[in-house]
Design a protein around this nucleic acid. Sequence first.
DNA 1: CCGCATCCTCATGGATACTG
DNA 2: CAGTATCCATGAGGATGCGG
Lengths: 225, 225
Amino acid sequence: MDKVRQDSKAPRSYGQFCALARGLDLVGERWTLLIVRGLLAGPMSYTDLRASVGGIATNLLAERLRALESNNIVQRQLGDSGVLYALTPWGAELRTPMEALGRWALPLLERGQGDDAFQPRWLALAIPALLRGAAANPPVELGIETDGFSMVVRIDEDGPSAVARTDEQPETIFTGSPDIVVGLAAGRLTIDQAITMGNLQGDRDTLSAVFPPERANAGSVSATP
Amino acid sequence: MDKVRQDSKAPRSYGQFCALARGLDLVGERWTLLIVRGLLAGPMSYTDLRASVGGIATNLLAERLRALESNNIVQRQLGDSGVLYALTPWGAELRTPMEALGRWALPLLERGQGDDAFQPRWLALAIPALLRGAAANPPVELGIETDGFSMVVRIDEDGPSAVARTDEQPETIFTGSPDIVVGLAAGRLTIDQAITMGNLQGDRDTLSAVFPPERANAGSVSATP
DNA sequence: CCGCATCCTCATGGATACTG
DNA sequence: CAGTATCCATGAGGATGCGG
């Protein structure tokens, strides 16, 4: 018999004619934005995505992905290595509100990592968000390594971006704990402080080009958490 | 005996060292951002707030307000008319990410109001969000009436803002359904189309100063919902 | 293995009634 | 008016199963 998948999910809506409310109808459920966070770095397989989201139950991930797909935020791709999930163009535009929310929540990072989990790939969203507004011509590239994960932060005329580092070219690499890297990006630590606490291989100029000293303690974070 | 209020709420956290996740720990629960939406227009009493949020159960509102207060997003004020809830400075900064999310969700309004509820005061968040970036010197003010509610949209050198209209000064007033007002603000309708569908008392120049024709169909909304 | 679906338990949400 | 108390429905979380 035909397996007609009954769309038995009536995904609780606010039922309000308001852009914010309708947006929250789509991305306001638990885990949803963390799934998008994972996909902002590029398409991923189900299993990788599950690890990237961090702690989501498998049935919930499947359910959320189904909802996201039917709302045109996520699309499935058939790679040669199996199924890949990717953001649609509209879904990728969630980067802006998500970065804004992340910047708002920055003061919450000041209490440090504590017992919380950490995945270096999450920084691939955070770093560009924190550096948003910066631009450089010619481009600057800085390798950053934390918690065993390497990424390249690049600032060009289009602004900052971060990608996982696959090659092994001798770029300027700064190594430090998540606290230090975030503190540097957030302007909470000066470059000198960061170098004292971390480890810089290469020239300091690249580091200060990516994290300009004038941003330090610049108070882009204004209020008390 | 002492009523020691056991803080029995262990408000389910993602437990991740990530600004987005920590932000969602505070404002990611259902209804929370809609409560903030209400308070962005100014301090409100419990009962007014409940009406403004639209459909929230009273126990949930009390619980959310308690959490928001203990997280320094909302603070209670003692007005002479009783308790008032207001945003803290940090809480008020949620306007930026909320506007960003609203702009992202704008395509969802294109299917019209349908059966959804509508409260004109919600536009006090939406209109400035849609007009963000606009500035005018000298300032322009336009009275807008929809669904029995009047507001004044003002654009000055600091950008757009909207406040409920209490006085009865003879300002230029445009009257139209929510669909029309939103369509105009979103640049989906031209001024001529809006006037055809609505009703303008006063001069067209003020209307076009607030909703510049060049924004119409400008494609600030890029993707498909 | 990967990509889910099912089952079960319990915390959370939602509606309504009630109280200082 | 400003909530609390109660009860039921629903969604989250965890374990496990199962076909490809």
